[in-house]
Design a protein around this nucleic acid. Structure first.
Lengths: 200, 200
DNA sequence: ACCTGAACACCGTTCAAGT
DNA sequence: ACCTGAACACCGTTCAAGT
């Protein structure tokens, strides 16, 4: 039990979220799950909003760490598909993430977003330098790819998995981008196939 | 006052939503705004969820009607930018729309979604036939464009308008798609410019 | 048919205490 | 420092009445 009480609360909240959706995560149940009173969480988080923002900040940081642990910076294709795999594995966390708008600009959450984005842009610049992706402002290209992935995941989950899987939509985009590049970028066929089977 | 009580409740709910976000729309305040008791809405809607789903179904239907009122079917570029303009004008309604997941598959909402999507696919097929967009499954191409727009709007609004405006992201996508077509599709420069100025 | 008021179980949050 | 229990104001929903 070396795990801090603070993280314990976040884990309990994530479990409630995954099991029964955002409406089911109440401070009372979170406290109950870790064996403290219904307002003990206020010792660690300023409000329920703060707890939820901290939860997705931690998730995003974990996704970053997973990529950073590799010996080489992954390709943009791998990075975005890793993110999509996380979203498909934990749909309610993803939903919470996209629902959480400014509302106060949570510091940890902003930092986690920036960290992922910086890594993604670096990955794009490398493929641009190798003529695997079209030239142009890498931040702008990042925005296009990120938008497509975000929307594809959102729509796929919102329709209950009845539409085109995100990996295929993302693959289509990279296909069109390849025509703007001098050489075709890798398709990461293995990851795409793995991701396509992640949700029925 | 020929307006039905049912619509009156939806309008009041939309006003509360726009003014103070999703947390502020309570059945009690909605009832108060139209001058009825706090549970009169139950005569018209099965639950709060039902009222909210009906609200965005009505919104989506209005967006459809706006396009259908024109003498000719608008281009895919115009359709998607009209949707984006609506989203930027009513960010909280858009947020509610993307937050509303299966949760029961609201009939009116599903119908409105299908109606818009069918119109969009028809518009794509027309440009494909004219060699203005790449060939291939129009439904698949529709999914790519729709995903990009959805994600671009979401990200733009979530960052408080600090990132690339949705119209430019969508424009970039159509630019890359044009390289896969025999002739370049129209860019709808006027609509793009109008939309770019819609949110500071 | 349509609405009302009271009531129920629940929630986030605050606060005065406890150790 | 960290937690507790009671309390407050609020919420969605139900239900027995009213017309």
């Amino acid at each position: 039990m070396g795990i801090p009480r603070c993280d314990h609360l976040l884990i309990a909240a994530a479990a409630l979220l995954d099991k029964a959706g955002p409406a089911a995560v109440t401070l009372r149940d979170v406290g109950r799950a870790v064996g403290v009173s219904h307002n003990a969480p206020y010792r660690h988080f300023a409000s329920k909003q703060d707890l939820l923002a901290s939860l997705i900040a931690r998730e995003l940081r974990d996704v970053c760490k997973e990529a950073e642990a590799l010996e080489r910076l992954p390709s943009p294709q791998t990075l975005i598909l890793t993110f999509a795999r996380w979203a498909l594995a934990y749909p309610e966390r993803f939903r919470l993430m996209i629902f959480h708008w400014p509302d106060g600009a949570h510091a940890d959450l902003c930092e986690a977003r920036c960290r992922w984005q910086a890594m993604f842009i670096r990955a794009i610049e490398i493929q641009q330098a190798a003529a695997l992706l079209p030239t142009g402002d890498p931040e702008r290209l990042s925005c296009l790819i990120r938008s497509t992935a975000l929307g594809a995941i959102q729509h796929y989950l919102a329709t209950g998995g009845k539409d085109t899987p995100p990996a295929e939509v993302i693959g289509d985009l990279f296909g069109y981008l390849a025509r703007g590049a001098q050489r075709a970028p890798p398709t990461n066929a293995a990851l795409v196939a793995e991701l396509s089977g992640a949700v029925d």
